[in-house]
Each structure stands twice: as structure tokens, then as C-alpha cells.
Design a binder for these strands. Sequence first.
RNA 1: GGCGACGUGGCCGAGUGGUUAGGCGCGGCUCUGCAAAAGCCGUCACACCGGUUCGAUUCCGGUCGUCGCCUCCA
Length: 466
Amino acid sequence: MITVYNTLGRTLETFEPLQPGRVGMYVCGPTVQSPPHIGHGRSAVAFDVIRRYLIWRGLEVRFVQNITDVDDKIIARAAQLDISTETLVKDISERFLTSYRQLGVMDPDVAPAATRHVPEMIDLIDRLTDQGLAYPSGGDVYFRVRRFDGYGALSGRKVDQLRTGVRIEPGIDKEDPLDFALWKGAKSGEPSWPSPWGEGRPGWHIECSAMSAKYLGLPFDIHAGGADLIFPHHENEIAQSEGASGGLFARYWLHNGMVNLGGEKLSKSTGHIIDLAEAIDHYSGPVLRLFFLRAAYRSPIEYSEAALTDARAGLERLRSFARRGRSAGGPDQEVLDRFVTAMDDDFNTSVGLGVLFEAVREGNTRLDQGEEAGSILAAVLEIAEVLGIDLGTGGLDDLTRALLEVAHRYGVGEGSAEQMMEQLLATRTASRQARDWATADAIRDDLAQIDIVIEDSADGTRWYRR
RNA sequence: GGCGACGUGGCCGAGUGGUUAGGCGCGGCUCUGCAAAAGCCGUCACACCGGUUCGAUUCCGGUCGUCGCCUCCA
């Protein structure tokens, strides 16, 4: 039995998909205005793990993540760079995709872009105006917040206690400062689409309402995103979708915790960010992923050098065990059961990792005692797969030239990287048997120079890339 | 000002009314040509003050502190 913490109601609930065996999942994707930061990475990993886990538990998951490719900031940034919004959007979208893949995040089943769903949004806005829940005003269209009864249910806010003053944009003709834009009339030079209200572009929230309904139907099971989206974004989505349909929008609302830096939330607008691509370059995708997974997805986490170094050491421990033996037979069921218990509890990856590390210790102990650990290893590999943690350490192909140089030093002929590696290890073993420690250590040191680590053990010499 | 989350051992980070989370680090030991890896032992904590209870880190109240949202934001 899987339980999830539902922001709507703020309780732990049993997870039961609307249609048995099938899950519809919508995750709010990025506004592709500037390259991804660490926070985007965390959110992506959090929901990727949930998706993988649900699939592993036998559910068929349809995973939709939108791309917001039109908004004020995209327009402003493109102008600033003197490029078209299309060029900017394409460039940034690719960066997101690349970084996400490096983190081991599976591609969405559907990745709808807002600009390709304008007719659907216009249709939705139309229905809202028909019902009196929205009104046109000077080329814009606004949602009447006070007209929608359930407003505030998700975020726990009451309409009257919102800080209304801050929300008034000068020169905008709203009936009520709380009202938010569904459609914005175009200013000259901006990307725009024809509509019953004139040329313009959609407001931010409406795309999610339109696209989630299109690709998942209503209601759907899981709607997810960063905790900073709860208000107003998700609240507004609910108002739009439920206002138009009269029925339920999404059943379970999941929100990941923020990534902090120096005690403060990362934020685009303040420039207080850690670039995701840079962090991946510095630590690697799997290290970052493990860092994210160590904490429960709802807890805020603190990005720090120490925490990342810590995660790197932990990953090395997992990989080191994966290198030791061969998996054999089926995975150890008891280990898997404990993992399931951990993850069924609101996808508690922190405890799940605890199970994984305990299994590693058990496996290592068995191997140390000359016992079989194949089923433990199989379980470890399976869990790592579900968590999306890559335990492989990569091939040697890109090191062929460097290896050739080392090979020459010890009279090993040219060949493929693997062949040269094999020959070098054979040479070293011969040196060790001849008690020629100087040569043996020199080979090890030279390989270490090109980031290939040598470890001697009772059952032979292993190597891996650092 | 309103709403919400949280304060755990050297660090990160789960969790629980009475029993070992886990990882990293540090010290010691075993194994080992050395190194590494691995195993074992040690480092046994729950902001503060009250209350409930046979018993609270875990429940209730208060204090202090940190963070998030209320504005674009994963």
C-alpha cells in the first residue's frame, strides 16, 4: 500500500489511482528563460524517482511535463540578448534536457509546449468567461478570484487575508486586485496569437490547466511541482480547471522542498543560484542525484560543498560493492521488501537508501567471508535502478590515447583500450609475483594519473575509473 | 501582518511514546608486500521551559531560533 502526502488536505493518504493500474502524472516544468539551477535538478529527480517507483510497483504511468516557452521574462531576455524568443527557447530547452538526462531523469512521455496549445487555452478561457468566472478588460482577460468558492483550499489561504496591495499592477484594469491574468493583450513587437479578445498571449497558469486536461483527462491522479508553486500557480490552476469543468482537477498534489544556499532559497530573480550544468560538471550527475535522494523529497535541503563531497563518498561505496561480485539468482526478497516498506511511505528515499546501504554492508560481509552474495548484489542493482542511481563507472574508450602512453612505458603493445588495460594488469601481476614492488607500484601510480584506480584483492586485481 | 514547515550526535539526514536508522568524517583494530577496498569496535544525539504519562527526542502548551509562501520562481 503506497501512501502519499497530499498538499491538498495536508495529510498522508493511501494512493489509489483513479483507474486501477494506471497513473496520470503532471509535473510543472520550467519556464525556459535561463539555464537550469540546482533547484530544477532536485525537483526533476524527486518526481523521476516517484515515477520510476510507481512503474516498478507495476503501475503504468503516463508522465507529462510542460515547457513554458512564452512569458514576460523570456521576451525580455531574448530582447536583451538580441535573439528571437524561439532561439532562446530552443537553446534553454536543450540545456534543461541535457542536464536532466545527466541526472538520470527519464524523458517525459509528453512534453507539451505552451505555444503549441494556444487554441486549447483560448477554448478554456472562453468557457470561463461564459460562466462569468472571467472577464475581458482592455485586451486582457482576468479570472474573478472571489467568484470561485474553493479558492485558497490548496494553499490554506483565505482570500481576505492575502496581501492584496502588492498584487496591483499599475495601469491594469482589474475589477479586483486578486484577479489574475488568463490572457494578456500584446504590446508591439511581442509574440502574439489571434484570439476573440484581440492579439495576445496566454497567462502563465492557463497552460497547465489546458495541457494537463488534454493529455491526461480530468480528473487525473498526480499533480506535482516545487513547493514555491503552491501559491499562486497551483491555486490558480485549480480555480481555472475546476471553474471551467465543475469537477475535480487533480487528486494528489505533491510538492518538493526547496534547495537552499547559505540558508536562503535559490532564486532566479535574485541571481542567488547554483548553475545545474556547472554542478554536474564538478561532481557528476549521479553524485548530485544521490545528494538529492539522501533527504526526503519534501524537506528543504542545504546545498554545500561538504554535503556533495559526502554524497560522492557514498556513491563510491555503492559502486565499490557493485564491482566486487556478480549478481546471481533472483534479488534478495527481504531486502526488496524493506525497500518497498520505506518507499511506500511517501517515497522516503532517505530510508530507502538506508536499506540500500545496509544491503551493501551485508553483501560485503558475505564476500569477506567467502560466501555467496549474488542475490544481495542483484537486489542492490535493482534498487539502484529504481532510484535511478547509475552504479557503472564507464568504459575506457576515451582514455585510449592516454593508456597508449602508459602501455609504451611498460612494453605493452598498441591495441584497444581494454586490451592494453588487460596487458598492463598482467604485467603488473607478473611484477608482483617477482616481488618487483617498484614496477608494480609505478604501473599503479601511472594509471592513477589518468584516473584509473587499481585495487588488489584475494580474487584478482580490479580497476575502475575514478 | 497572515499562512505553513522545521530545529536530531563532529557534519548530512531519517524516524519513533519505552528497543541499532543510514551515510560521511575522525580514532583504533583485522585483512594486506604497500596502497585501496572491505569488516569489526568506539565517537550513543534529539533547541529551551512547562504539562500529560509508569516512561517523551517522539503527544500538548509556551519561549527562542531558522526557513518557505503571501510578487516571477522547481
